[in-house]
Write a protein that binds this DNA or RNA. Structure first.
Length: 448
RNA sequence: GCCCCCAUCGUCUAUCGGUUAGGACACAUGGUUUUCAUCCAUGGAAGAGCGGUCCGACUCCGCUUGGGGGUGCCA
């Protein structure tokens, strides 16, 4: 056990951004690594945007990624009295003061003025702290300014609420995005003015897009929910996210959650921005899918079959027989059941380009009919028997006197029975589909 | 403008003064195979620039350039 207490403190504003959840992931990992507590605080002071739905999205995203927290959720609005009490203390100690300030609303352009409370920053010397990832950080007092902690409507701003809540929850390490480094100089002063111990800080590099700009929804999936919808496994996204700005120091990349917890440390976190490489995530997702136990994958396939209105069992074989060849070819769960639907429905969809290329060749249809007859006449219809038959045919001389070759036979058959150009090995596919269906589809393909 | 931070293959990264600068993704080629995927092999691919310090710098220091963040009565 350790006395470390970290927190994830999102403000629910709609969807959970990938950069945001990454902060949660690192907090969680750090807490689990050192045996401390991971807390969740919802900073719901923006009443307009902090809806039940928005909060649920945060909770859902965390649950999906397996980020369990150790104490009941704290809602910032419930601490309003503490925030104001802290302001009173700062006021009476002279650390804060009231002043009339004029401002322009950036949205409406309206001018307004009113009495606010400002926090007093030092006028000389330096403010400094040691960031657990960025090292020594310092800012000259002359480069700081007093800042508003209570608005003219009497509501406390982020800075005071955030710090007071962290004190109340006994947070020892603040792990957050790089966009908060400037705030740190302010927050440290508040902690001190309130007589509270200053926590340790660790600022995580930003996640940026291929252009090096902040990663946004324009760059593809930017919110946790979208990755789920697009068929990514939470384990894969988790693993990938951890590798953005952190590496174990050896050559491991695909790591289990336990391995990540064991290996994680803040001092190995990089401090430069990391680009989000969707291709690598896709690869990693494929790795995780391939490594899923067959029954887990089968359950996923089943539910997606049901959602697509397809039968629970393939037409010519069992689901268990179909799983291995399908699983290895699945990169995201959204590939299901599309990449194997011709095993489940009698009337299949044909890829027009494949039909054009493979079936509209001179002699192609005659050949399909010949194979239909030959397959129908086979004593038994298996991977071995169908392969032997096709190979024998491939060795025979074609019109030009040379052997026909496997490719010229296999491709048309594949398109005729599956409607597409890729999939399991042809003979495996034939055996799984079953003789009657194969023969029927070969004959039907002549009409295409 | 001012303040803070950052800088190794296209991308994610290893390296904590001495290495043929390693791995992964992506890409290319070859092998396996009827396709796709898998698997195996091979290949191209990096220390932003200029100065220092040092016997010796990717590594330490400075400057330049480039990038990011901040500069709200947002969080």
């Amino acid at each position: 056990m350790s006395s470390v207490r970290v927190r994830f403190a999102p403000s629910p504003t709609g969807s959970v951004h990938i950069g945001n959840i990454r902060a949660a992931v690192f907090n969680w990992l750090y807490a689990r690594h050192v045996g401390g507590k991971f807390l969740l605080r919802i900073e719901d002071t923006d009443l307009a945007r902090s809806t039940k739905e928005a909060i649920d999205k945060v909770l859902d995203a965390m649950a999906w990624l397996g980020l369990d927290y150790d104490e009941p959720v704290v809602y910032q609005t419930h601490n309003a009295a503490d925030h104001l009490a802290a302001v009173e203390r700062l006021l009476s100690s002279g650390a804060a003061y009231k002043a009339v300030k004029e401002s322009v609303d950036p949205a409406t352009g309206e001018k307004k003025s009113g009495e606010v409370v400002l926090f007093r920053m030092p006028k000389e010397g330096v403010v400094e702290y040691t960031d657990l990832v960025k090292g020594k950080m310092r800012k000259k007092a002359e480069d700081t300014q007093d800042f508003v902690i209570v608005r003219s409507d009497g509501s406390p701003v982020f800075h005071i609420a955030n710090v007071v809540d962290d004190i109340k929850q006994g947070v020892t390490h603040i792990i957050r995005g790089d966009d908060h480094v400037e705030n740190t100089f302010k927050h440290i002063q508040i902690f001190q003015a309130l007589g509270a111990p200053v926590p340790q800080y660790a600022h995580l590099p930003m996640i940026v897009n291929a252009q090096g700009k902040p990663y946004s929804k324009r760059d593809g999936a930017a919110f946790v929910g979208e990755f789920k919808e697009q068929g990514y496994l939470p384990e894969a996204l988790f693993n990938f996210l951890v590798l953005l700005g952190w590496a174990p120091g050896d050559d491991r990349e695909v790591m289990s959650r336990d391995e990540l917890v064991e290996a994680f440390s803040l001092d190995r976190v990089k401090s430069s921005p990391a680009r989000f490489d969707l291709k690598k995530l896709l690869w990693m997702n494929g790795e995780y899918i391939a490594r899923q136990p067959a029954d887990v994958f089968k359950a996923e396939l089943s539910s997606r079959l049901a959602a697509a209105g397809l039968p629970a069992e393939p037409l010519g074989c069992t689901l268990d027989e179909l799983v291995p060849p399908v699983q290895i070819r699945t990169k995201t769960l959204s590939d299901l059941p599309g990449n194997c639907e011709y095993f489940f429905k009698e009337r299949i969809d044909y890829d027009p380009a494949a039909v054009e290329k493979r079936l509209h060749k001179p002699g192609a249809k005659e050949r399909l009919l010949a194979f239909a007859d030959a397959f129908a006449a086979l004593p038994d219809f298996t991977v071995e028997s169908t392969e032997a038959l096709v190979r024998a045919e491939a060795d025979k001389a074609g019109p030009d006197g040379k052997p026909v070759g496997m490719g010229a036979l296999v491709h048309p058959i594949r398109v005729a029975v599956s409607g597409r150009t890729e999939g399991p090995g042809l003979f495996e596919m034939l055996a799984l589909l079953g003789r009657d269906r194969v023969v029927r589809r070969l004959r039907a393909a002549v009409a295409l």
